[in-house]
Computed example of a mutant assay.
Amino acid sequence: MTFTVYIKSGSSASSNGVFIIHHLHSFSIDFGIFRRIFQILYTDCIQQCSRPMYMDRMILLVVANIVNWFFAIFGLVFRPRDFASYLLGIFICNLLLYLAFYIIMKLRSAERIRPLPLFCIIATAGVWAAALYFFFQNLSSWEETPAQSREKNRECIIMHFFDDHDIWHFLSATAMFFSFLVLLTLDDDLDEVRRDKIPVF
C-alpha cells in the first residue's frame, strides 16, 4: 500500500515539495477466538456449575448463606436495639458453623480425632452452651444510660460479687479458648502424613 502526500509551501510552483510514504501492513482476524470463548464459558460456567466439584463445600456454603441471610432479614425486620450483641451473635454462629464443618469433613475423610482434641471439642460444646444461656439473659443494655442498664442486673450469685453478666464474660472467654484449642490440635493425627496426601477442605 502506497500513500502519496503533497505538501505545498509558499505560492510559487518551484517551492512545492512532494513526499512519498510507503506503508506496508497486513493483518488478519482469527474468528476462532469466539469459539474458544464459548467453550471456556460453557465448561467453566455451565458444565461445572450444573454439579459442584466439591459437594461438601457446597453444602456448607448453602447452610452458611441461609443462616447469615436469616440474621440479615431478622435484623431488618425486628431492628434489634442492642446492635453490638446482635453482631456478636452472628460472629459466634459463624465460628461454630466452621468448627462443625471442619470436624465433619475430618470424619468423612476417615481421619482420626485424638483424645486431646476430642476433649477440647466436648469442652467447647459444653462451655458454649452454658455461655449462650447467660448471653440471652439480657442483663444489660448499651442503648440505655448506665442507671437504666443497672436496673436489669440481678443478684450476684458467685461470692456475692459476680452476677450473670460477669459469668457470661468468663464462660465466653473460656469457650473461645477451647474453640481455638480445637483448631490447634485437631490435625495432630496428620503429623506423620505427607502434605500432598492430606485432603484439603
Rank of each mutant, 00 (worst) to 15 (best):
Y54K: 14
M55W: 13
R57S: 08
R57P: 00
I59N: 02
L60P: 00
V62A: 13
V63Y: 06
V63P: 02
A64N: 09
V67Y: 03
V67I: 13
G75R: 07
L76A: 13
V77D: 01
R79F: 05
F83M: 12
A84G: 10
G89L: 01
G89V: 01
I92F: 09
F101W: 08
F101I: 03
K106M: 12
I113S: 06
L116A: 14
P117S: 02
F119L: 15
F119I: 10
I121G: 01
A125T: 02
G126Y: 05
V127N: 00
V127Y: 01
W128L: 08
A131M: 02
L132A: 02
Y133E: 02
F135W: 14
F136Y: 13
Q137W: 12
N138V: 07
S141N: 08
T145K: 07
T145V: 01
P146T: 04
Q148H: 06
S149R: 02
E151Y: 04
E155L: 08
I158Q: 03
M159D: 07
F161G: 00
F161C: 05
F161I: 01
F162V: 08
D163P: 00
D164E: 11
D164G: 07
W168D: 00
M176S: 08
M176G: 05
S179T: 14
L184V: 08
T185R: 08
L186Q: 11
D189V: 03
R195A: 11
K197H: 13
